Deep mutational scan, measured.
Amino acid sequence: HNGKLCKLKGIAPLQLGKCNITGWLLGNPECDSLLPARSWSYIVETPNSENGACYPGDLIDYEELREQLSSVSSLERFEIFPKESSWPNHTFNGVTVSCSHRGKSSFYRNLLWLTKKGDSYPKLTNSYVNNKGKEVLVLWGVHHPSSSDEQQSLYSNGNAYVSVASSNYNRRFTPEIAARPKVRDQHGRMNYYWTLLEPGDTIIFEATGNLIAPWYAFALSRGFESGIITSNASMHECNTKCQTPQGAINSNLPFQNIHPVTIGECPKYVRSTKLRMVTGLRNIPSIQYRGLFGAIAGFIEGGWTGMIDGWYGYHHQNEQGSGYAADQKSTQNAINGITNKVNSVIEKMNTQFTAVGKEFNNLEKRMENLNKKVDDGFLDIWTYNAELLVLLENERTLDFHDLNVKNLYEKVKSQLKNNAKEIGNGCFEFYHKCDNECMESVRNGTYDYPKYSEESKLNREKIDGVKLESMGVYQILAIYSTVASSLVLLVSLGAISFWMCSNGSLQCRICI
């Protein structure tokens, strides 16, 4: 991952900044910058967002509201009850120091605090018919004063009620008058409520006091790749198909172990950190130390980045220098085999997901714990399936590479015959000098055995068991695999060879 928040398929997220979902939807004055928000790819909250409900109280069923919003990608904020005409018999300019803005008392931008007009609070009834052709999110509140005197001074009615009804919602609220500790300079409380109004449905408000009335509502448009994440990451000019709280993932790998919460087309989250597919040879310690064997393909974004291909070729060293050249036929066979294998694994496992966190309130801790156990169970199954699949494929890959290298080895052996000696570690020792032209003939299969047989015969008789390297004779190393990324691999195959001279070296080696 890149540690950044990015656009998702070209669409920017909605960053709530210092506000949370509650503050944004109710219209906390400190969240005025969010009022123009219309569309987004996903919503970003920060872990310690401080601006929620400015007048103390709870947004009821907040967790369910977050779940609903996680599939919303755009909205239209509109005046559901026009301020100047909807409440002619009531005062609608209630403000509070708890919702101060720029040093002055204020109130929510989407709600109206209705109080008595003169000395009376006549029963009010108002309704709205949803003609938007889509779901409408309606929010309101109920004020709970701290004393009967406060109730009387604001609403005149000691036994007030609030009723809200639609086809799918029907509740009646009565204020709970009680002494409470002071929070944000208030002994009173406000509880906030919401409902989704279906197209064509009607919502009716009736009250004799204590109503925090809707002013603006939201017509919602769903987008199934949307979601809500909690993150401290910063926004950058970048684009992605998959976003996590820790950063964007741009990967076609089937798995990731970065974060379980994802938005967009994302690899499946697994616990494993070692889900690797081999593309090189079986481990040979001396070669492995030099980083030549054991190439791997990573299938977990965050564990290993991208696929690494092994390729086969020849390396030689003689009086004229040293050089490398790919054996294109065996390399292409290996590439085709690995590509098919990788595609097979991805096809089997690479279903892209959006995974969002589930919200539970403080009273639902047991449910949250149960949900976590269920999620953990599914996660263990996914991890096991992934590891088992790759384990089985790896064994076949190792066998496949062994065969490829063996074929190259036999190709060289059949040409050199007794003009060189096998020394048991995949290397041959020449009994004759071999210049670049000679080396090329070994690589392309045109090695002239009779041409060098007499010199080889004489050297075999002279050496008589002495280690060949100390006599200045020449080696050919018969097994060799270097490691390159897919891009470098293609470039390498396009070149005939490249040279690395070893000044004054008397050794001649050709490596497979």
Rank of each mutant, 00 (worst) to 15 (best):
G298T: 09
W499Y: 12
N407Y: 06
A326T: 02
T383F: 08
K462R: 11
S330I: 05
S492T: 12
V374M: 11
G280D: 09
C238H: 07
G472R: 08
S286N: 04
K348Q: 13
N232I: 13
K373W: 06
I338D: 09
K341I: 04
W499D: 07
E469G: 09
E301F: 06
L490P: 00
R460P: 06
D309M: 05
S470L: 05
P285N: 09
N239I: 11
C438E: 09
K457R: 08
R282W: 08
R366S: 06
E461T: 11
T279D: 04
Q246P: 07
Y474C: 08
I512F: 04
H316P: 00
G426H: 08
L253I: 01
S486F: 05
E347G: 10
E429W: 10
L379V: 09
S414P: 02
G264C: 05
A326I: 07
Y474P: 08
C242T: 06
N362Q: 10
C427D: 02
I335A: 05
V374K: 08
Q332R: 03
M307G: 01
L487P: 05
E265L: 09
L391Y: 03
G377I: 11
K467S: 12
G247E: 14
G247W: 03
E265F: 09
T305D: 11
D376M: 09
D309E: 12
V270S: 03
A386S: 09
P254C: 07
Q317H: 07
K421P: 04
T383I: 06
G247D: 03
S485M: 00
F255I: 04
I510A: 15
I512G: 00
K358L: 09
I308C: 06
N318P: 07
F428A: 01
V342H: 12
G310P: 00
V270F: 01
S414F: 00
S330A: 15
N318H: 08
E440F: 05
T244E: 02
I300Q: 05
F353A: 13
M307F: 02
S231C: 00
H236F: 13
Y480P: 12
I308L: 13
I338E: 10
V356W: 07
L493M: 00
N404T: 09
V405I: 15
S231A: 13
C266S: 04
A248R: 08
M367H: 06
M277K: 05
W382K: 04
S492R: 11
N350E: 05
C434W: 09
L253K: 12
Q507A: 09
K372Y: 01
K341V: 01
H432R: 08
D375W: 06
S231P: 01
R396M: 07
Y324G: 08
Q288A: 11
G426K: 10
G357Y: 13
V261S: 09
F430M: 09
L477W: 06
V491K: 00
Y324E: 00
E301R: 04
G321A: 02
F400R: 04
P267W: 04
T244M: 01
G337C: 09
E455D: 14
H432M: 04
T446D: 12
N407W: 06
T446W: 00
V345W: 04
E364F: 08
A325K: 02
N503P: 00
D375P: 06
F498T: 08
R290C: 02
P254E: 05
D380P: 02
Q507F: 02
R290P: 05
S497L: 14
G472K: 06
K457Y: 09
L392D: 03
K341R: 15
V483I: 13
Q320P: 02
G310D: 06
G298S: 05
D327F: 05
K329D: 10
L506D: 00
L458I: 07
L490E: 00
A386D: 04
A248S: 15
F255V: 08
I423V: 15
L398R: 15
A297T: 06
G247C: 00
N385V: 06
S322K: 10
G445T: 11
M471Y: 11
Y449M: 08
N503D: 04
A295H: 04
Q352N: 03
N318Y: 05
E422V: 13
G426Q: 13
A478D: 09
I346M: 12
E359K: 14
N459A: 07
A355D: 00
F430Q: 14
K358Y: 12
S502M: 13
C511E: 07
Q415I: 13
T446H: 00
T351M: 15
K373N: 11
E319I: 05
D402Q: 09
Y269P: 04
G494Y: 06
N418T: 15
E440Y: 10
N407I: 03
Y449I: 06
G306A: 15
I338M: 11
L490G: 11
R443H: 03
K348V: 14
L388Q: 13
W382M: 09
G302W: 00
G337F: 10
T305V: 11
G472V: 02
Y447G: 04
I284M: 10
L487M: 14
K365S: 03
E364Q: 10
F430N: 06
L408I: 15
N333P: 00
M235K: 03
C511I: 14
G337I: 13
C238Q: 03
N362D: 12
L468A: 09
H315Q: 13
K413E: 09
D464N: 08
N318L: 05
M367I: 10
C511D: 08
L487W: 13
Q352F: 13
Y474Q: 02
N444G: 13
F255H: 04
T240R: 05
N371E: 07
N257E: 06
T482D: 05
K365H: 09
A355H: 00
I284R: 13
Y314C: 10
F353D: 11
L370M: 12
D435G: 09
V442S: 15
V442A: 06
G504C: 01
Q243T: 04
D399R: 07
I263F: 03
I335C: 06
N404C: 03
E469M: 00
P254M: 10
I258Y: 07
N250T: 15
F378M: 10
H259D: 14
E455A: 15
Q475W: 02
L391P: 07
E454D: 08
A233C: 08
F378K: 05
